[in-house]
């Protein structure tokens, strides 16, 4: 773990849900499974609310349908990879 203050910025970027189902059902579980591969803390931020990317109930409670924008924010040793991988997953439309 890096010391506090060494790193002022965490990794974050904004994505838009393109797939029909949104972040429900299978896409939601795919998302959580992918997020759980990384050590970093990963949060999704939508309309100022934060959601735990590694929690299926948290992700589902976002209720994010098609066309919704949100921020993926990661903090930790593999933050860059985590954000990139999740972005690709969302942009691929979860294979729908």
């Amino acid at each position: 773990m890096l010391e506090k203050g060494v790193r002022a910025i965490m990794k974050q970027l904004e994505v838009v849900l393109k797939n029909k189902t949104g972040l429900h059902a299978r896409p939601a579980s795919q998302f959580v499974q992918e997020a759980s591969k990384y050590k970093s803390d990963i949060k999704l931020i939508r309309e100022k609310n934060e959601y735990n990317a590694k929690s299926i109930v948290s992700i589902l409670s976002m209720g994010a349908g098609k066309g919704i924008r949100f921020i993926i924010q990661a903090e930790g040793e593999d933050e860059a990879e985590a954000v990139e991988a999740l972005k690709i997953l969302v942009e691929s439309g979860f294979g729908e």
Binding site: S29, V32, N52, K54, S55, I56, V57, S58
Partner: peptide
């Protein structure tokens, strides 16, 4: 998956 859920 719910059983593994860190939030709950």
């Amino acid at each position: 998956m719910i059983l593994d859920d860190p939030e709950i």
